[in-house]
């Protein structure tokens, strides 16, 4: 009886091997695909907001005020040279000029309201680092890191967008090789500056400046995550 086991008692049918291969391949593809999907989402503007224009109640144009009128960044961002925070100007700074220039336009209605009531204007933040990252503007500005290196061509932005991902790997690009980014200290606020203005390539000039300024950007975890 035990010798005559019928063939139909086989557990696996003829196609079983194919099913197994298909499962393995689709499974691997699924894992890889999910990984790739996460990778793409993580680095893209969906997650980082990179390149996304941010709307404001008052459509303030950096392009107009800097390229058009020639104002220096520091006219409004007064604390950028000696504090962690660059500073958002109080309404009083707007009113230095706008008490008489464009003083009746609808566009500036919220500014005048703020001036009369003392209630600060609300601005929507563009470049927002996570709260577990310590960042200080003054040390970067005084080391020869131009505004443009992080903020992009703000002087040509009617509405501001975030130029870079602000992810850690992006910070480290410069902390690992500052010579690729550093510029002369008196050109930090000049967003039209090019390394060719000094008659050198960025690499040559950068190496010279890194030595001259004694730059040793740290890569310790605790430098930024303190």
């Amino acid at each position: 009886m035990t010798d005559n086991k019928p063939e139909t008692a086989q557990i696996f049918g003829k196609g079983s091997n194919q099913v197994v291969w298909l499962t393995i391949i689709l499974g691997l593809a699924g894992v890889a695909g999910a990984g790739a999907l996460l990778f793409i989402i993580d680095r893209g503007p969906l997650h980082t907001n990179q390149g996304v224009y941010v709307n404001q109640d008052v459509p303030f144009s950096h392009d107009h005020h800097t390229e058009g009128l020639g104002l220096d960044c520091r006219y409004c961002h007064t604390s950028v040279e000696d504090s962690a925070f660059a500073g958002i100007p109080p309404t009083a700074t707007c009113m230095n000029c706008h008490k008489t220039v464009w003083a009746n336009t609808e566009m500036l209605e919220p500014v005048r309201d703020s001036w009369q009531t003392g209630q600060p204007l609300e601005w929507n933040r563009v470049n927002d680092l996570p709260d577990f990252v310590y960042f200080n503007h003054s040390i970067h500005v005084s080391s020869g890191v131009g505004c443009e290196s992080c903020h992009g061509p703000v002087n040509e932005m009617p509405l501001v967008y975030q130029e870079h991902s602000l992810q850690m790997r992006w910070c480290l690009e410069c902390h690992r090789s500052p010579e690729d980014f550093v510029r002369p200290k008196d050109e930090v606020f000049n967003l039209d500056w090019e390394p060719s203005d000094e008659g050198m390539s960025q690499k040559e000039l950068g190496k010279k400046l890194v030595a001259e300024y004694g730059l040793e950007p740290k890569q310790n975890c605790s430098t930024c995550h303190r």
Partner: peptide, 10 residues
Amino acid sequence: MHNQAKFEPY
């Protein structure tokens, strides 16, 4: 962790 219970400037 990104938006902790503390105030950033302004």
